[in-house]
Nucleic acid binder design. Structure first.
Lengths: 342, 342
DNA sequence: CTGAAAGCGCTTACAG
DNA sequence: CTGAAAGCGCTTACAG
């Protein structure tokens, strides 16, 4: 790998001149410019970005920490793609790394990006290991300590509301339940996500709140814990059926759970929506192609991620985004064949 | 951000000593060790990885270039997770970036990782923009030119067979067709992927080869182009039905296509598998939860990615993996309810 | 318009 | 066991 010094010698000029030609940071005579470019070409020279960064004390890089265990959803692809696009537009290099210390909530991964002198870091919290939101405190401490801006996605930090962007899972999860109640349902079952996961707790809370507010008693027999995968939805639904507790509607932690449940219902020849109305969560594209098509709640991942990136870029420019009340996102209920009034 | 110099002053020693304590690269008296650690603690010091890399002339980093437009599949999650795990195990930092120059096949993204002095780069080619495999030549040239090892996934480079790992799409795609023929089918339709994509071309070729080898004429009326999404499978299948060309089996470019097609068949009250046998490709987990469950071809992404990473690590150690014949991967046919003999 | 020199924050022979 | 010095490959005042 040729260095700038070698280029300068070959071109018969000084390093400084080569640097100036490359950065367009001073007027250089056309002759020397040509000579420099020729030498660069001949030596196949490429600047050492590390050295540049060290010297300039800036890397022009944004770090993104992505969660593990997302191989079952396409959320990750969206997240990365949106961040990449916005980083490109802002002229920043996006350096992505995956959480390597799940038990520690990814703190090490964030640190590692900062150690590489990212100008700012974006972190997606999958909340899986965060039963009591302990990571929340660690994250808050980290925000105070880090020399660069950190924006946290999918987690609400009371001490740093303007450093995070989160979904209102409670509200999102009660929307389908509210709707079902409005349609005359009162025996509404729920298959939760893994309840050691904060998102799962919050969504269950939404389900319960909707029932409470409607004066419907919460029946523990109508609540089962799934695992956020098809298989968990399938077996949870089978459990539900075994219990013989009647229900006319079933809400699920996510779409995979709902699809697993649908399969269980169909195996038992329980007609959807005639006998049971079904609603998922996430609005996966496949729902439109199932028979029946399945209703769901759509969280606008696009708006969400875009907001987070813009918040980060604003912090970089120290023009903190005027933050609307709270950077909280809810969702929309998307109705399909799987639901009917009673 | 405290520097090593500040730490050394606070501890009353030289920079060299601090460096040695941190790297365990020399015997240091316990007293000074303690003093150094104390100073580090007090100053909240973290080494500048950029400076370390520049000085050591090594970054201990592996670059991974991921494709765009993968937001519809969960392949990306798998790819990243496996690479991250293996990098962790090898004690390397994995630096991920997404292709930012699709039209150029990601060459710039690879370069940008090399400019950041990654010790080696892994690149997943999604082949979408590679109708005539032009990128293949560019990639081959790049391999010759780069100062570090580059391993290319999902693309066969004739000049560099030991720098790439690829799926045998032709063979993979003919497996279901061979099986159907063996089960007595001869009127087998096919919904292709977008045919400007190399993978789609190769899989179509597999379908055609199977028919040819069985002495079955290829009927253009039984071939439609989809778009690799549900919607394309749905409308392609509708086209197929409109043509009134009879078929007893339908193979698809991928599972999304098959699911879209299944929906179209069900809307037309065509029973699967009684009237039409259906086979997808990729073996998405959802297939087990559809009604009927849908057969597919499983490419072992895990083995594939693992092999690629190991190849890269071997190149880093200059102990080029003894490469079996060719780093080519086929798949397995996974049979489910959607297929029956005729 | 161009060069010599100092500096970015580390590591590592070379001495002692 | 420890320090002074040179070097990694750049950038950027400071001169001219």
């Amino acid at each position: 790998m040729a260095t700038m010094l070698e280029v300068s010698r070959r071109a018969g000029v000084s390093k400084s001149t080569v640097s100036r030609v490359l950065n367009g940071t001073a007027k250089i005579s056309e002759a020397t410019r040509q000579a420099v470019f020729k030498a660069i070409e001949e030596l196949n020279y490429r600047p050492n970005v590390l050295a540049q960064a060290l010297s300039k004390q800036a890397t022009n890089t944004i770090g993104l920490v992505i969660p593990r265990g997302s191989s079952t959803s396409n959320y990750l692809g969206l997240l990365i793609e949106i961040c990449q696009d916005l980083a490109d537009k802002a002229g920043k290099f996006l350096m992505i790394t995956q959480v390597c210390d799940e038990e520690n909530g990814g703190i090490n991964s964030i640190r590692s990006l900062v150690d590489r002198r990212c100008d700012a870091v974006l972190y997606y919290n999958n909340s899986f290991y965060d039963q009591y939101n302990v990571n929340g405190d660690k994250l808050s401490d980290l925000i105070d300590e880090l020399p660069v801006p950190l924006v946290v996605m999918n987690c609400y930090l009371p001490r740093h509301p303007n450093h995070c962007v989160w979904y209102d899972h409670v509200y999102g999860a009660r929307m389908p339940v509210d709707y079902l109640i409005q349609q005359g349902h009162s025996k509404i079952a729920y298959i939760a996500g893994p309840l050691n996961q904060r998102t799962a707790q919050l969504r269950l809370e939404g389900y319960e709140n909707a029932l409470k507010d409607a004066g419907i008693a919460i029946d523990p027999l109508l609540i089962v814990e799934g695992d956020r995968y098809y298989s968990g939805g399938f077996s949870a639904c089978n459990q539900l059926l075994q219990r013989k507790a009647e229900f006319t509607a079933l809400c699920c932690f996510n779409d995979l759970t709902a699809i697993g449940a649908l399969h269980a219902l169909q195996e038992h020849h329980i007609a959807v929506p005639e006998q049971v109305s079904l609603i998922g969560f996430d609005n996966d594209a496949v729902l439109d192609y199932l028979t029946p098509t399945v209703s769901s709640v759509q969280l606008s991942a696009h708006a969400f991620v875009t907001h987070a990136m813009n918040l980060l870029l604003a912090k970089l420019n120290e023009t903190d985004l005027a933050i609307p009340e709270a950077s909280s996102f809810t969702g929309d209920l998307v109705l399909r064949q799987s639901v009917r009034a009673i």
